[in-house]
């Protein structure tokens, strides 16, 4: 199951991808991002998607997409077979997000990971004021029916990268329509004001 993803402008992600790259979009949904990248960046794209309806939509768009579960199926992808792997707002839904992250960096030279930021001030305030699990625009589910098993903040993700010796090549904060860079100097404040974090990482 996938939650409704918050729309990140395709061009933000496209801006992080080089022309003619080999791209694997894990949890590619209806394939619109892959299609956008195919048209605008002439990528050689592949998708992995758990929902069959979505896979069918992808096939109708001429995309090469495999119906499967990233947690079980990434193991079948050879080392370094992609330039870049994309995991858009899905890492929090895996049983073992750390393992998936490391798998992606085995398969691809770089990965783009986007996360809904649990450190966002509205999320923090929601918990503080209501005393119940936050339900916000980016996190629309109640605790009992959420597909999000492992929520993290931007800072949490940074810490995991440090722990696993993963290099953060670039990170971007997205809040409403504002896009800005995250650096080690502004991490605390960006962790507070970002709805979403976009990370380009490598090993």
């Amino acid at each position: 199951m996938r939650i409704l993803k918050v729309k990140i402008q395709d061009d933000v992600l496209a801006g992080l991808i080089e022309i003619k790259s080999r791209v694997l979009d894990v949890g590619c949904g209806d394939g619109n991002l892959l299609l956008y990248l195919k048209k605008n960046k002439r990528i050689d794209g592949r998708g992995l998607e758990i929902n069959q309806k979505n896979v069918q939509e992808c096939l109708g768009k001429g995309l090469a997409v495999i119906e499967g579960d990233a947690e079980k199926d990434l193991i079948n992808y050879p080392n370094g077979s992609f330039d870049i792997a994309i995991l858009n707002q899905a890492i929090q839904q895996f049983y073992e997000p750390r393992k998936v992250l490391n798998e992606l960096l085995r398969i691809a030279h770089k990965a783009i990971i986007t996360i809904p930021n649990f450190g966002y001030w509205k999320v923090r305030l929601n918990l503080l004021l209501t005393g119940t699990m936050p339900v916000t625009k980016t996190l629309p589910h109640s605790w009992y029916d959420t597909p999000n098993l492992h929520m993290s903040s931007i800072k949490d993700f940074y810490n995991l990268c440090n722990l696993d010796n993963i290099k953060v090549i670039k990170s971007i904060s997205i809040s409403s329509n504002k896009i800005s860079d995250i650096t080690s100097n502004n991490l605390e404040i960006k962790n507070l004001v970002s709805e979403l974090g976009v990370f380009v990482v490598s090993k």
Partner: peptide, 18 residues
Amino acid sequence: IVIALNSIGAQVSFVNII
């Protein structure tokens, strides 16, 4: 078959109909 094709970078799609 999908794994064999995927591992050589072939353009392969796969669907398992329930």
